[in-house]
């Protein structure tokens, strides 16, 4: 019951909130030249195979964009390459005109908030130690991370160790670590994969709350969350961009069916819709 209310409520503001968050601007990606994120000819080879091959992609300076696609489509690779966790073999990624691939790692680390798919620190650090590290990486004003700790309700967790935290608590710590310095670009690699419904909704709401100050590029498996929260959706298939547009377009004309190799059924209700995979093609 509560779940349903949430869906309809959340379905309404499709556009990212805030001044620059008019849905059209985000979906159309018509940002002034030089600002925002511009990806150009990014290629990644692994074991002699081209696993990522993006021709060109332009994203505005702020807003929410989802990256969807079947397993192995290159979602993680794209985010890891942009975040600096992996190296690209070709291409460039300009963030406000500066190439993320060619700037010093520490500078990139200050500009990008990276939420990895798996985060398993080796020393069972205390939460405040992790936040300290995150803060040092950004060189942000000290107050910012204290604010983030407050914002994600980490007060009681600060003196606790990572391995003793629940999945939801870990997610909050990771978000504070990634978002604390208010980076202009946030990359989240299936951040909700290990979270229950309430926590993954809250995480997406946190993203939406900040979509007016940063650009969020989020790899996500749950298509219904993707169409509900993200005004801009990029679908990858075999390392190539198979679709780039709004949720309504995605649900039309069998785009999803081609990307996932599954026939999807669209069920409309109220002012939203849901997508169900019905039969494999």
């Amino acid at each position: 019951m509560t779940g349903l209310t949430t869906q309809t409520e959340a379905a309404r503001p499709l556009g990212a909130p805030g001044a620059s968050g008019a849905p059209g601007a985000v979906a159309g990606g018509k940002a002034p030249a030089g600002s925002g994120l511009t990806l150009d000819g990014i290629q990644v080879m692994k074991a002699g195979r081209l696993i990522l091959d993006l021709e060109s992609l332009r994203l505005p300076p702020t807003g929410l964009a989802a990256v969807i696609g079947p397993n192995g489509a290159g979602k993680s690779t794209l985010l890891r390459v942009l975040g600096g966790a992996e190296k690209a073999d070709a291409g460039r990624a300009l963030l406000d005109g500066r190439d993320l691939f060619r700037m010093p790692g520490r500078r990139r680390a200050a500009l990008v908030g990276f939420v990895p798919q798996h985060f398993a620190p080796h020393w069972n650090q205390k939460v405040h130690e992790l936040l300290e590290l995150a803060e040092e990486r950004t060189g942000a004003a000290p107050g910012l991370f204290a604010e983030a700790a407050e914002e994600f309700a980490l007060g009681d967790l600060l003196a606790r160790r990572w391995e003793g935290l629940s999945g939801g608590e870990r997610a909050r710590v990771l978000l504070a670590m990634a978002l604390g310095g208010r980076p202009p670009l946030v990359l989240a690699d299936e951040p909700g994969a290990a979270l229950d419904a309430a926590h993954s909704l809250r995480m997406l709401e946190a993203f939406r709350g900040k979509a007016s100050e940063s650009l969020f590029l989020v790899a996500i498996h749950d298509l219904n969350l993707a169409v509900r929260f993200f005004p801009r959706i990029i679908a990858l298939k075999d390392g190539k961009a198979a679709f780039d547009g709004g949720p309504e377009e995605l649900a039309e004309g069998g785009v999803l069916d081609r990307v996932f190799g599954v026939r999807f059924r669209k069920v409309e209700f109220g002012d939203g819709f849901m997508l169900f995979p019905s039969t494999a093609l």
Binding site: T2, T5, E9, A10, G18, F152, E205, A206, G209
Partner: peptide, 21 residues
């Protein structure tokens, strides 16, 4: 734009973990 009703309805789900913003 903050979806306050949605958040409010969720409050009961995990009372201990106060906020996601």
């Amino acid at each position: 734009e903050a979806p306050v009703p949605g958040g409010a309805s969720l409050e009961g789900a995990a009372p201990g973990s106060a906020v996601f913003e």
